[in-house]
Design a protein around this nucleic acid. Structure first.
Lengths: 336, 336
DNA sequence: TTGTAGGCGTTATCAA
DNA sequence: TTGATAACGCCTACAA
């Protein structure tokens, strides 16, 4: 009874395996009574078709791989929700992988996916550049990829991003208009796609308002919270900016902690605005001004694009789809 | 070149498939040179063993299913991180599923897992009681389950929980000692495991301090944010509690929003403490007192227990493992 | 150290 | 409407 399978079932029911298979796969012609009899008996005996056998035959896994830098983060968890929502409707499941922003992990997982573990991949990349051949292999295996938020420009694939440049420009301009003379830019890796684009918006806004760009005001942080705390403390004490535009949510939090500790008042001494999907941003002290990306919608869009490829088997629209972020001006940057 | 497989490789290398298989599976004896030659050639030609074929033979998926009520939530996302950390070290991957607290989704997914989709399951249940037979089926198929945080008492399986009763007792007592005469208890479903245990702690603390329990002060909320806002607004205006013990993080946030809107001052008019894993709780206005569960550690523990079963093939310790939450008293409940 | 062969559990094709 | 059969790609006895 332990290892029931289609053959045993066939024998017990005195029927062929093909008929049983048909009972479970809807479409083909099969007598209604036979089908019901099979399904009833199967349920009783706790039989279900084995996924791995089916997959081996069909080369369909009904699984989507989702690769993100981190999970415990409002942006990514909301995006995953969006992906899951779409996947679920299609009867697909999510294989989740976190890279911790470590390039090697990304490579290793993508390689792992290279042979029939998932039908498609949705990813937000770790960012380190250089050799993206591991992604090109996927194409050969016909495993479609959709990027979201953090993308590799040199890989041809559908991409879902937001208007980062515009938002960054607007955020920086907002700080300048609020009276900031010395706006710092917080970033984790200024040389990769997102950090770069956002920085460009920052620089162009400065230029528009005839503020000279100062390299010292670009504060490049790490992935280690403690290190960031030190970096920011030092920067705030020594460089003394009066405005902060943070390209990463957790750097804004770190800024808050530092300010609390060394007695800098937000927004009086320092105005802060940050990219963030934190849902309780309005409840912070002071409420944090944010550029909020449509995380959930991005997930939905990415998944939808992936299914377009999967279902139409077409090479699909490998363009970049740009959704719009929203600027929420709150007390941290405006004083009201 | 498109569909490379072990046979083609064998033919091209003029070698047998078994030898190739051996090259990829470490253990068996194989000539070093042969192995290197195979691996090199395989890499060049982008060959990797197909998971579904291997799994079909081995009945090993190297996949863990993780079932949670929600993903976009600091508690669960941190727990998932913990699970992933352990899984990764074992070379396992995570199939993630979100139930939205809907019992039917939970059942449907568990049934889906019933046949070779994952080697084991880690879950935090939706909570609705009644018939848990769908879980018992897993046992027959030898798919081990570990529960965390939200468990079904009637199912025999390893369980990872926290000292909810004690924490709830302590939190309630803290409010009473801070001067609250009318402490409300916020809960999403007071009749299921976690809501029930936490409520018991609340009630017993009241009793200890000779505060009469008042059923009106138990405020049963929903999963809909807007509805909760209305419920809480009404409760705060009509019942006028002076203390809130929230068993669910987002109800505390809703309380904050309501208070902001109708001008109730926390902690002067109302003291608040809540179960919460929000990492920026200290940055809220006012900083939120929390009972913080060791989410990450719980994930690690749950995964570790699962691997114990998987590896020792033993029936494993099906006990309840209780980790301790921490109480962080902040301004929202103490006024300092 | 390497090769041969059978089977893991399904499903699609073809024939009945 | 149903049944027999040959794959899907791999791995492991067993034999050499």
């Amino acid at each position: 009874m332990d290892n029931i399978n289609i053959k045993k079932l066939a024998k017990e029911l005195n029927i062929s395996t093909s008929t049983i298979s048909r009972a479970f796969n809807g479409n083909t012609d099969i007598n209604k009574d036979t089908k019901e009899r099979i399904l009833a008996y199967a349920q009783q005996h706790n039989y279900l078709p084995n996924h791995y056998a089916s997959n081996l035959r069909d080369k369909k896994t009904n699984t989507l791989a989702v690769i993100v830098p981190e999970i415990a983060n409002d942006f990514f968890s909301q995006a995953i929700n969006g992906i899951e929502e779409v996947a679920r409707k299609k009867g697909f499941y999510i294989l989740l992988y976190r890279t911790d922003d470590v390039f090697e992990k990304e490579v290793s997982f993508v390689n792992y996916l290279n042979n029939g573990k998932a039908d498609g991949i949705i990813m937000s990349v770790s960012g380190e550049a250089n050799d993206h051949n591991y992604l090109r292999q996927l194409e050969k295996k016909h495993v479609p990829v959709v990027f979201f938020d953090r993308v590799y420009e040199d890989i041809e694939a559908a991409k879902v991003t937001t208007n980062d440049y515009d938002s960054s420009f607007a955020a920086t301009e907002h700080l300048i208009k609020s009276g900031c003379k010395k706006v710092a830019y917080l970033v984790v890796n200024k040389s990769i796609s997102i950090g770069k684009v956002r920085m460009q918006g920052y620089m162009d806004a400065l230029a528009k308002h005839k503020v000279t760009f100062d390299d010292n005001l670009v504060i490049d942080c790490s992935n280690d919270e403690k290190v960031n705390y030190k970096i920011l403390k030092k920067a705030l004490q020594e460089i003394k900016p009066d405005g902060i535009f943070s390209s990463v949510e957790r750097l804004a939090f770190a800024t808050y902690y530092v300010c609390n500790d060394i007695g800098i008042s937000i927004p009086n001494d320092l105005k802060v605005i940050s990219f963030s999907s934190l849902r309780v941003a309005p409840l912070l002290s002071p409420p944090l001004s944010t550029i909020t990306q449509p995380a959930y919608e991005m997930g939905v869009k990415a998944a939808t694009l992936l299914f377009d490829v999967l279902e139409n088997n077409s090479t699909a629209p490998k363009k970049e789809h740009v959704l719009k972020s929203k600027l929420f001006i709150r007390k941290s940057s405006s004083g009201e």
